[in-house]
């Protein structure tokens, strides 16, 4: 799996994503069910960190965030 596929899977798959939006350093993601988010798998996929607050999960991936978000949207 490439990085976008790994991140999407670790976020609980396309069905769990309400919205995904890139920022300069991170993917801002809103999920339906935050219990389906696997932080360890996100870090294994290359995330520098994961910041969760309720249904909003910020996956810190660095400046490649916009490219990864486009790749994830292509997979959804």
């Amino acid at each position: 799996m490439d990085k976008a596929e790994q991140i999407l899977a670790a976020l609980g798959g396309a069905d769990n994503i309400v919205e995904i939006e890139p920022c300069a350093t991170r993917l801002r993601t809103e999920v339906h069910d935050s219990s389906k988010v696997d932080e360890k798998a996100l870090k294994a996929a290359g995330a520098f960190g994961v910041i969760s607050s309720g249904q909003v999960v910020q996956v810190v991936v660095g400046p490649e965030a916009d490219t990864i978000a486009t790749d994830i949207e292509d997979l959804m």
Binding site: T25, R26, F48, G49, Q58, V60, G62, P63
Partner: peptide
């Protein structure tokens, strides 16, 4: 938190 914790 991303900047404060120097995650990037």
């Amino acid at each position: 938190p991303v900047f404060a914790q120097a995650l990037v």
